[in-house]
């Protein structure tokens, strides 16, 4: 339970001499869900890219389940659920094709699915209630169904560490609740989950931990300790307006998710 899923130590990332993320340190325990909160351009995507090994930090080191990222990827430890805008929805693939892509890392070079792969795809589709739509081309799905498809791919990948980029953007209430339920189940099984979101109100309902980020890590810890109006105002450079409105946003529409 106390194993470290994502271990970030003193990581600085710069693009063309501009620092996007300064001296970030962070330890996410296995079996926890951590919300990543910050403005656009605060370094959320940069942090994801650094964890995924897509950008090389200028300083520091990152370990995933105790392994350097490139070793971790070879053993299917990390799954990434992209933002909807990053996907080419006209691509000629079906829902089941996309979910099967989560299994490629388990297959031989020709990527011919075996019975275990097919079973994993079937089960993942059932868990997100997309079995009926398995042969649908992905462009013909609703926003929530699209998200569920890519979430099912992460489930099929059976990764220990999940990174989700804005999973609730443009998603219906039913899908949001389903995804949160699934995330809570994964947490029970000891998965490490890092999730970036703009939906401040829902964070308290399912994130045990929160990271506030604004080009460096402003605060990190238990949600109840860190997620204060003062801290949030710092993360957003006070651009959310006066503190009272932030407070009311936090307290006003708490949704209970059991």
């Amino acid at each position: 339970m106390n194993a470290i899923g994502i271990d970030i130590e003193n990581v600085t990332v710069a693009y063309h001499g501009k620092v996007a993320l300064h001296s970030a340190s962070l330890q996410l325990q296995s079996g926890s869900i951590c919300g990543l909160v910050g403005m656009n351009g605060a370094g959320k995507s940069t942090l994801f890219k650094a964890i995924m090994g897509f950008v090389k930090p200028a300083t520091g080191r990152i370990l995933v389940n105790g392994l350097p990222i490139h070793k971790a990827q070879k053993t299917n430890i990390v799954a990434y659920v992209p933002q909807s805008e990053e996907v080419d929805w006209n691509f000629p693939v079906s829902v089941a094709d996309v979910v099967m892509m989560g299994r490629y890392g388990y297959m031989n070079i020709l990527r011919i699915p075996g019975s275990r792969d097919k079973q994993a795809v079937r089960e993942s589709l059932e868990r997100v209630q997309m079995s009926d739509l398995r042969d649908r081309q992905i462009g013909e799905l609703s926003g929530g169904q699209k998200k569920r498809t890519f979430f099912a791919r992460a489930l099929a990948q059976q990764a220990q560490v999940l990174l989700l980029d804005e999973p609730f953007a443009g998603v219906d209430v039913k899908t949001e609740k389903m995804l949160i339920d699934l995330l809570l189940q994964l947490r029970e099984r000891g998965h490490t989950i890092l999730i970036s979101t703009h939906d401040l109100a829902s964070i308290k309902t399912f994130c045990d931990r929160v990271v506030l980020i604004n080009r460096s890590i402003l605060a990190y810890g238990n949600t109840s300790d860190v997620f204060t109006p003062e801290n949030i105002a710092r993360a957003f450079d006070n651009s959310l307006g006066d503190l009272s409105s932030v407070t009311s946003q936090l307290n006003g529409k708490n949704r209970d998710i059991k």
């Binding site: 995924m52 090994g53 490629y104 890392g105 791919r153």
Partner: peptide
Amino acid sequence: DSTHARSIG
């Protein structure tokens, strides 16, 4: 999806 391709190694 080259991001996913990279993330599975």
